[in-house]
Simulated assay, not measured.
Amino acid sequence: MTRVYMNRWFSVAYHYINMIRNNPDGEPFEFYGTHPDINHMSLLAADHAGTEPAVFGLEYVEFCVDFCKRNSIDIFIPRLHMEEISRYVHLFDEIGTKVMVCRDIQLLDSMIEKDKFYEALADKNLVSIPDYRVVNTAAEFKRAYEELTAAGHKVCFKPTKSEGGMGFRIINNERNPLRELYGYVTLSTTFKQAYETLSSTDRFDSLMVMELLEGIEYSIDCVATAEGELLTAIPRRKSTGRTYLLEETPELLDIANRIAKALRIPYAFNIQVRYSHGVPKLLEINPRMSGGLYITCLSGVNMPYLAVQALQGKAIAPPVPRFGIQAGYVEQPLIMK
């Protein structure tokens, strides 16, 4: 029986645990999960659940090491504080726990801070990068906005270090605040509103001011070996609402292959791109299973289990995914107790 631990994951961990558990080889697994909220949905599929302490840095890593040691964990699939866990991964090696994390600290740190990652990729000819500026003051924000609009771009901004859509805003000077009060919550703000808010402090955490990409968005879910050799890449096209299309797009598969060969990211990772005037441009790369991976697995490829096999060092034949699948998702009630 292989024991797997997942720390503070999103609620989609429910799906990934069940996919690994219901693997086609019948390999038995036992799952452990921790989260600050013991009632979090990510823990629902776990066989054993625990509460995480409010600690950070090395202290948090030591909590995870102790948890793995006490529960004889074979495989640790982290989400929270991946960079700290990678920095001290030798502590897990010492107790015999395999960790699904990129061990290239410099690469991992750069993927987490988007501006550093764009800088690292600038001369590698792997994928087009959006036009952007990094700013820390209101004056720099104003200058960046003016330069990008002069270049013909619509403009958005987001923190250099954030997860998902946190802090993302679109600059739209045609907003009607009264009409928006009666509508849905919007991600838009005017330049004036953003500038006035940022002017309230002398200096703020780094923001990326960048061209707004308005074309079709894709998530390319990937799995590679421990050495970073790509086993599979499946583009998932984001459509309207909750609709997705698993699409065999040679241009995107080529991007995935180039990135895999150049960066050697191990195990599960996700490349997000969005088209602008027919050109796919990089949004970000997440060095973990993506939030929508369970939809990609409708291709017939059990990607969470594939990543586990890669971590175990097993010989894996590259799978053959089914493309052309249109899919979506709906809420399903689950009894927790």
Rank of each mutant, 00 (worst) to 15 (best):
I259L: 12
S42T: 02
P266C: 07
G215E: 02
D93L: 07
R8Q: 09
F10A: 07
K124Q: 15
A226S: 13
P321A: 15
I95D: 08
I316C: 08
N136L: 12
R21L: 08
R143L: 10
R322P: 00
H35V: 06
F92D: 01
T160H: 07
M111I: 09
N176G: 08
I38K: 05
A122P: 03
L187G: 11
A226P: 06
K142C: 04
N172T: 14
D25E: 13
K114P: 01
K116G: 14
M208V: 08
L253Y: 05
Q272L: 06
L282D: 00
G33T: 01
P280I: 04
T137M: 07
L91P: 02
N286S: 03
N257Y: 08
A144V: 06
F157V: 02
T2P: 00
N125M: 12
D131F: 05
R175Y: 09
F67D: 01
A49K: 04
K161T: 06
N302R: 01
L246T: 00
L252P: 00
Y244K: 03
E217I: 12
S199I: 07
L108Y: 03
I220N: 01
M210S: 09
P159V: 08
M100D: 01
L198C: 08
L283Q: 02
D202L: 11
E217N: 12
T296P: 01
E119Q: 15
L178C: 14
Y184Q: 13
K142V: 04
E147N: 07
D37Y: 07
R242F: 11
I75Y: 01
L245T: 06
V65L: 02
A268T: 00
A233L: 08
L44N: 10
N7D: 11
T160P: 02
G152V: 13
T201Q: 14
E27G: 05
G96M: 10
N173D: 15
A150R: 10
G50L: 04
Y32K: 04
E229S: 13
L44D: 05
